[in-house]
Design a binder for these strands. Structure first.
Lengths: 340, 340
DNA sequence: TTATAATATGCAATCGATTGCGCATAAAAT
DNA sequence: ATTTTATGCGCAATCGATTGCATATTATAA
C-alpha cells in the first residue's frame, strides 16, 4: 500500500516538461500557459501529489512554523493563548510548534535553541519564572527572527509584547469592592520580581488612595499565591486585631484558599468578607459562592501576538518597530463580592 | 547584528577539510580522528554553528516532528495529554506540532493534510466528535507513518491506541458508592454513539448487578453532560417518587450541576445523596464539598502514546503490530461520597 | 520584411546536511 | 618484504522545490 510520494519531477516526466514549469504552474505563475497549468493540476491530482514543505523550507529559508514557548501547556490560561495564536496563524498557513519550559530557565534556553534549529519563522513566548538573564531571547532577536512576548515580558528586550493592563484590572477590582461598601480591603500579592504582581499591587494601592482609604501595610500579604498560600494568608489576616472586610487576591488560586478558610469558620461571603480573584480560571465558575475575578483575555492575547507576528513578517523585519499591546482586562462580577 | 548562519561548509573551509568530514565529526563517526573532531567542535563553537534541521530532514526524510491533533488545546484533559507526549518526545529529540480540530470533521481532514505536508514523522490524534469517516487517518497509516490514537479510537482503523478502562472506572465508582451504603444509585450518561459513555454505563450496570442491586431504568438520565444538563437531570431525579441516594455522573461537569441543585435545596452531600463524577477536572478540587471523581490518567496517556510512537519508529514500521493500551483509571475519593 | 516585444518553457544552481564509494596512507599480519 | 587490514578523509550525488537567467517560439510593430 505504501506508495512512494510523488514529486514535481514525477509530474514533469508524465507531461514531458521540466520541474521548473511544474513548480511555476502549481504556484500559478503568470508566465505559464493556462493549458499547461491545467494539465499539471490534473496530473498532480492523479499522482496524489503533496508538496514537500521541507524542501521548500530549505530553499526559501522559511519553514512556515511558529514556535511557541509556554511555561506549561496544561494551564488554562496558556492553552487558551495557544489556541488564540493557532486560530490566526492557521489562516496564514502557519503551523505552530509548542514547547514547554516548565518554568525552568535551563529548559527554556534549550527550547529556544531547539526552535532555532528547527528554523521556525518566529517565536512567541512567555518566559519562565526563573528567567533573569535574557541572552537566549536576544539571540533570537539578533538573528532577525520575530520574537513576541506575551503576559510576561521584559522591557530591556525591546521586542513586541502583548500583556493585559494588570494595573487597571486590579484598580477596577478594588474600586468595585469599595463600591460594595468595603473599607478594609486586604491584598494577596505575589513575587515582587514579577511585574504583573507589582502592577496589580499598584492598582490596589491607587484605587484605595483615589477613594480616600488609607493604605494599611498589615493588610497586604505576599506569597506564591497557590491554594495553600491563600489559606495561610487568610488565617493570618483573620488573626489581626481588626479584620479586613474584603480580600483582593492577585490569583484565583489564592482566593480559593481564602474561601475555604472562610467557609470553614462560617464567615459569610460576601457579607462579612468579600472576595475577588484574578485570572478567571474555569473553577471560579464552580465555587460556592462563584468567585468574582478578572478575565485575562487569554484568547485575544493569543490572537494579538499572532497578528503582530504576521505584521512583523510582512514588514520584512526592517522597518518594523516593536510595539507593546496592552489589553483591557474584564472584571467579572459574581456572588463572592456582590453585597447589593 | 544579523550574522549569517554558519554551515558545515564554513567550518570545513576554516579547517581545510570537507563538509563530509565535518558532518561526520559532528556526529561522532568512528572513522574520524579524535583530533579532527576536537578541531571541528572548536570551530563550530566559535562560529556559533547551529545545525539546520530542515536540511537534515530533507536529506533523511525525517523531520523529527510529531504531529498532534486534539479537538481543542484548551481543555485540561487534552493539554495534559499533550504535556505527557512532549515529556517523552523531547527525550528522544522530537518536537511536537499541535493542531486543533475544534471537534470538526472538515478541519480535521485539512489538519491531517497539513501535517502530512509538513512531513511529520508520526501523528498522535484524538478524533473529532463529528468524525465518522476515517479515510484521512487511513491515508496516514497507508503512507507508513505511525499513527496512534488516544482516548477516542476506532477499531476498524487498526492502529495503536491508548485509552482508559472506562468500564473499570465506572465499576469502581459504583462499587465505592455501594460500599458507602448507597442503594439507589442514579447515573448520568452521555451520547450513546461514543463508546466511552457506553462503557461507563456498562460498568455502572454490572457493578449494580454484581452487588445484588436491581437495575432501575428511571434512575438513568441521558444528556450532553454539561453543567446545565447536570442541573436538569438532577431536578428530574428529585421529582421521582423515590429519590436516589447517590448519583454517578459520566462527567464532572454533570456532577457539578447536580451539586448546585442539591445545595440550593439543602439536600446534604453525601449524607442524603452522594456524588461521583468522572474526569478529575481541576475544579473538582475546589468544589464544596470536594467531588469524588475518576482520574483519566491524562499525562500517562500522553506518555504512553509517545512511547508507542518511539517503539513503532524504532521497529522500522515493518514488524510492528498495532497494540491497544488500556490504562487503569484511578478513583479519587473525596468528601462528596464519603459517608463513613 | 525585419526588428522588437511578449509569451512559454528549459537549464542549472541553490538551500545544508548526509552518505556510499573510493583512495590514499599507515599499521598489522604473514 | 609483501599482503591484509584498519584508519582517515574526500568526491559527488541526493533529498524536492525554487528561481535568475537564458532560449525558443510566436505575435506585434515598424
Amino acid at each position: 500500500m505504501r506508495r512512494e510520494r510523488a514529486t514535481i519531477h514525477d509530474i514533469a516526466k508524465k507531461l514531458n516538461i521540466t520541474a521548473s514549469t511544474v513548480s511555476r504552474a502549481l504556484k500559478n505563475h503568470p508566465r505559464i500557459s493556462e493549458e499547461t497549468k491545467k494539465a499539471v493540476l490534473k496530473v498532480a491530482e492523479k499522482l496524489n501529489y503533496q508538496p514537500n514543505h521541507i524542501a521548500a523550507a530549505l530553499r526559501n529559508g522559511k519553514s512556515k512554523i511558529i514556535g511557541i514557548i509556554v511555561p506549561t501547556a496544561d494551564r488554562s490560561f496558556f492553552s487558551s493563548v495557544v489556541r488564540g495564536i493557532e486560530e490566526i496563524a492557521n489562516t496564514a498557513q502557519y503551523n505552530v510548534m509548542i514547547c514547554q519550559s516548565y518554568d525552568n530557565y535551563e529548559k527554556e534556553v534549550a527550547t529556544v535553541e531547539a526552535l532555532l534549529n528547527a528554523r521556525v519563522d518566529g517565536i512567541i513566548a512567555s518566559y519562565a519564572k526563573g528567567t533573569e538573564d535574557f541572552e537566549h531571547f536576544l539571540k533570537v532577536k539578533n538573528k532577525g527572527i520575530p520574537l513576541i512576548m506575551f503576559d510576561r515580558s521584559n522591557e530591556e528586550l525591546e521586542v513586541s509584547s502583548v500583556i493585559i493592563d494588570d494595573y487597571q484590572g486590579a484598580y477596577n477590582a478594588v474600586k468595585h469592592l469599595i463600591n460594595q461598601g468595603c473599607k478594609r480591603i486586604a491584598h494577596f500579592t505575589g513575587i515582587k520580581k514579577i511585574s504583573i504582581y507589582r502592577e496589580r499591587f499598584r492598582g490596589y494601592r491607587e484605587a484605595l488612595q483615589d477613594h480616600g482609604i488609607a493604605y494599611d501595610e498589615s493588610l497586604v500579604v505576599g506569597s506564591n499565591l497557590q491554594l495553600d498560600d491563600g489559606r495561610e494568608s487568610m488565617i493570618k489576616l483573620l488573626s489581626l486585631p481588626e479584620r479586613p472586610d474584603a480580600v483582593f487576591s492577585a490569583s484565583d488560586y489564592g482566593a480559593m484558599g481564602a474561601m475555604q478558610v472562610l467557609k470553614e469558620r462560617n464567615i459569610r461571603i460576601p457579607q462579612d468578607i468579600a472576595l475577588v480573584g484574578f485570572g478567571n480560571e474555569p473553577f471560579t465558575w464552580f465555587s460556592e459562592p462563584q468567585l468574582t475575578t478578572i478575565d485575562q483575555r487569554s484568547k485575544q492575547m493569543g490572537n494579538a501576538t499572532a497578528e503582530i507576528f504576521l505584521e512583523q513578517i510582512g514588514a520584512g523585519n526592517k522597518t518594523f518597530v516593536p510595539k507593546k499591546t496592552v489589553l483591557k482586562p474584564e472584571l467579572i462580577i459574581r456572588k463572592s463580592s456582590q453585597r447589593k
